[in-house]
Design a protein around this nucleic acid. Structure first.
Lengths: 120, 120
DNA sequence: CTGGGACCTGACGTTGACGTCAGGGGCATG
DNA sequence: CATGCCCCTGACGTCAACGTCAGGTCCCAG
């Protein structure tokens, strides 16, 4: 498929896909005229990339780790890195949970009619 | 206390505190020569601001919501906003949890060469 | 009174993941 | 062969939360 279709199917922009390729995260075969073509697995790969981005990994980190996943091999460094990122995400989840509780407290504080609520 | 001490006690940079004031998140009294002075509650307030930032709220959102918390008063809009942000954080936690599980799978896939390698 | 921290106000620099625009080609359809 | 849509490569713009630098002020100890 061409880049437009992949973009639609993976719910990302065409620009993002070109950026992923620029960062070494996504490969494409080129037609003689230079147009990018992708196979079916590209859809899943893009979604994996999106997941890792939304988990707060940078392009460089993803670029370092994806080849290990592709090759299904790991070095001590890549394992340490994966574990490090996993722990970072755990910490971030904890932080978000705490922030959510703070927000709940704010909602309770400002939102209960008993504690003085100004309806407009 | 002056800005340097507040920065230390709240574990943020001096620049960040000036930025918070610029964004309307943090007030200060000024000495005749223009230096900022803060009371004890400023420490907690800065930490609350930090929590909200780390939860992904923007300066503008925080600026909109903090006065409601200060006044312990809410409008239907502010409650909707608080609830919206709370739900957004919940979704983000779910996303992070999913990403963490993906990372765990990657660790399992690449990290145990002895066990069979499943295809993704 | 003199040195040296801590502080002040601009104002430009940084980083990451793209958005967007300019200028030009590819290709199927009428 | 023209038209309309998709594609290409640069390359500059964006946004947020600060970092950093320049040039000047404040204040306390010695």
């Amino acid at each position: 498929m061409r880049i437009g279709e992949l973009a639609q199917r993976a719910s990302v922009s065409v620009r993002a896909l070109r950026y992923y390729e620029e960062q070494g995260l996504l490969l494409s075969t080129r037609s003689p005229s230079g147009q990018r073509h992708y196979g079916e697995p590209a859809v899943d790969r893009v979604q994996l990339i999106q997941h890792l981005y939304s988990a707060g990994l940078t392009s460089k980190t993803i670029a370092d780790l994806l080849p290990c996943v592709d090759a299904k091999v790991s070095t001590p460094e890549s394992r340490a890195r994966l574990t490090f990122e996993r722990d970072r995400i755990d910490a971030q989840i904890a932080e978000l949970t705490q922030a959510r509780d703070k927000l709940d407290a704010m909602i309770a504080l400002t939102g209960t009619p008993a504690s003085g609520c100004a309806y407009v």
